[in-house]
């Protein structure tokens, strides 16, 4: 199943505004971050501090990816 991933801020340099990754059943969000790192090894470092949001809520990375179509990849906050 192909999952759409929306990217923000500095992540766009690596993946554009959005990207998609093929995900097998039972894979976790952490697996997805690994796949993104394989897609662009330069992004590996920042991916270690990224969070993933679904339905405007952060999800635990060890959880299995749910059926929502769009995932939001959230780099470390730098507001203020």
């Amino acid at each position: 199943m192909n999952r759409k991933i929306v990217c923000f801020a500095g992540l766009k340099k690596f993946f554009g505004d959005e990207t998609s990754v093929e995900v097998a059943p039972e894979e976790s969000y952490a697996n997805l971050l690994e796949k993104l790192g394989e897609l662009n090894p330069e992004a590996k470092e920042v991916l270690t501090s990224c969070r993933i949001a679904v339905n405007e809520k952060f999800v635990p990375l060890d959880e299995t990816i749910n059926d929502q179509t769009t995932l939001f990849l959230i780099p470390p906050s730098s507001g203020g």
Binding site: F8, A9, I74, P75, S77, S78, G79, G80
Partner: peptide, 8 residues
């Protein structure tokens, strides 16, 4: 600053 998804 630390938690909310806003970027500078």
């Amino acid at each position: 600053k630390n938690e909310v998804p806003i970027w500078k």
